[in-house]
Amino acid sequence: MSYQSPYEIIAKGAESGRYRMSLPAWNILLRGGMAGAYIGMGAALMIIVSTGVATSLGKGMEQFIMGLVFPLGLILIVLTGAELFTGDAMLAPFAAFSYKCSWLAVFRLWILSYAGNIIGALGFAYLVTSGVLLQSGPDGIVANQYAVSMVTFAAEHCSYPGIFGILSCFLKAIAAGWLLNLAVLLGICADDAIGKIVGIWFPAMAMVSTGFEHAITNACLIPAGLMAAPSLTFMQVAQVGPLAANLSWSAFFLNNLIPASVGNLVGGLVFSGLLLWVAFQKEIFR
C-alpha cells in the first residue's frame, strides 16, 4: 500500500483543484448533483441503520453506528470523481496558492459545486421520502418508524435558537469541514482503492459520530424530514418530542443550512487548506 508524503498530497490536491476549475459549468453542476446524491445515500443509510439503537444501546452507540456507515457517500465521491463543495473549499485554494489561479475561478467552482450539491441532495431526499419513509396503507399514505427517526434528526438540527445557537452550529460546521477535508486528503494519500477507502473512512466516521454539522448532509436529511412530517400521526409526533415545533423550511435555511455552509467553507479553506499550505509550501516548491 503506497503512501504519499504530506507535501506530495498537497501538490496533488492543488493539481486536482486546478483541473476542477477548468471544467465547464454544466459539468461542475452535473458532478455536483451526483455528489449531493451520494452524500444523501450515506446520510439516509445512517438514519435507517441507527433507528431504535438509542433505546437499547444508548445515544453514544447510536452516534457511532451512524458514523460507521456515513462514509459511503464520501467514498463514492472520491472514487468516482464527483464534485463536493466541502472538498472544493480546500482543493481550489490549494490551486490558487500553488499556481496563482484566479480567485474568480475559485468562487465560480464553489458556487457551481454548491448549487449542484443542493440539487442532488434535495432530489435524493425526495426519493428517500417517497420510497422509504412513506408507505401506502388502507387509510392512505402513512409514515413508518424510519420517518420518525428522520423527522427527529431534522427537528434536532433545526433547533439552534438565537445568536448563540447559530454560533454553535457554525462552530460545529467548522469542525466538520476540517475533518471531512482531512478525509479527502487521506483519500489522495493512497494510490490503491483499499487505502483510499480506509483513509476516508476514519475522519468521516469521526465527523458524524461527534455530531458535527455538514451542510450537504443536512440539505438531504432535513428536507426529507420536512417532507415526511405531515404524514406523521399524533403518536409519532409525540415520539419526536417538543423539538418538532422547531421544524420548518425557514428554520432549515436560517438556523442550519446557512451557518453550516459558511462553517464548512471556513473549516476547509482555513484549517485544512491554508494551514497545511503554509506549513509545507517550502517542500512543495523546492
Rank of each mutant, 00 (worst) to 15 (best):
A143T: 10
A193V: 15
L182S: 07
V148Y: 05
L167M: 10
A190T: 02
I200S: 06
S209Q: 12
P230G: 14
V151G: 02
D139A: 14
L167T: 11
A147T: 04
I197A: 14
V148I: 11
V198I: 13
L226N: 13
V142R: 03
S136D: 15
G211R: 08
V142H: 11
A206I: 13
I197V: 15
A224L: 10
I216E: 06
I166Y: 14
Q145Y: 11
A155E: 01
L134V: 09
P138K: 07
G162A: 07
L185H: 03
T152A: 05
G165H: 06
P230M: 15
L182Q: 13
C169W: 10
F212P: 04
L186G: 01
L167E: 06
Q145D: 13
I166P: 06
A193N: 12
Y160Q: 06
K196T: 08
I163T: 12
F170Q: 04
P203L: 05
C220W: 00
C220A: 15
T217G: 15
I200L: 10
A183R: 09
I174P: 13
F202M: 15
A206Y: 00
G225Q: 10
N181P: 12
W178C: 08
I163G: 00
M205G: 07
G225R: 05
K172Q: 08
K172A: 01
K196R: 13
A190H: 10
L221E: 12
I200C: 08
I222K: 02
N218K: 03
A224G: 15
Y146S: 13
H157S: 04
V184A: 07
A224H: 03
A219Q: 06
A224S: 15
Q135W: 12
W178A: 08
I174C: 03
L226C: 14
I163L: 13
G199R: 01
I141H: 05
M205W: 12
W201E: 10
F153Y: 05
S149G: 08
D192E: 13
I174N: 09
H157C: 05
A154W: 01
A190D: 07
H157Q: 12
C158V: 07
M205I: 05
F170H: 09
F164Q: 12
H214W: 02
L179Q: 03
P230E: 15
G177Y: 01
W201H: 09
L185N: 02
V151M: 07
A229S: 14
A147N: 02
M207Q: 12
T210Q: 09
A147F: 02
F164D: 10
